[in-house]
Design a protein around this nucleic acid. Structure first.
Lengths: 100, 100
DNA sequence: CGAATACTTGGCGTGTTCGCCAAGTATTTT
DNA sequence: AAAATACTTGGCGAACACGCCAAGTATTCG
């Protein structure tokens, strides 16, 4: 990374942060689910089967990575996928998995 | 994840493992570099600027995730990218980053 | 205003990741 | 066979991630 970096160190760090955000089964599930439409935290919590605080933290992490956005409507917060291209990752990942 | 999972829990775990492997700046750099052609560990070590043992462990992790393959030739080990489609992730990631 | 609902945030224990150093293996060279 | 090169593996401390519970905030409803 010292000599002739293709990108800067900081750029790789930023990219890594996005990939890291997707590196958890629960967050991957939520992204998959959000690709079908917006969901509120309570719905996701029920689907995931964890504490709501845990789900909320996962969503915060995804939001900080720039992958989702949340909008408060009344007492609920609805999350949606900001960058649907992420869904295309899955095809490639499955190719990786099947090639083993 | 309990009710009506789009995929099984295990499938999300397997996918997460692949994404996790890409969730580190050094590994992301190496994948990027390997997309240009095979490289031996010493070359990558010099580029990354870390201990060779560290780089070797990163490569092992990428290999276990199914992303790269290593081939020993003489005293060197050359790594190559097994699934070039991973490179396409970067476009989307940058879209995510620029959309913030 | 008080209670209820839907979330977020703080804190904490546990487990995982990451980096280096040191030691081990394998291949080539002398 | 000994030395050198190119790795890999083990071990260890520091930092980070993850889960739950408890407490806090915000909005709505009676």
């Amino acid at each position: 990374m010292l000599q002739h970096p293709l990108l800067t160190k900081r750029e790789y760090e930023m990219r890594a942060r996005v990939m890291k955000a997707l590196g958890h089964p629960t967050r991957l599930f939520m992204v998959d689910e959000l690709s079908r439409g917006e969901r509120c935290v309570a719905d996701l919590t029920e689907m995931v089967g964890a504490d709501m605080s845990t789900v909320s933290k996962h969503l915060t992490l995804l939001k900080e990575a720039g992958l989702v956005a949340g909008e408060k409507r009344g007492v609920q917060v609805f999350y949606r996928l900001k960058t649907p291209c992420v869904v295309k990752f899955f095809e490639c990942i499955d190719a990786v998995l099947h090639a083993r």
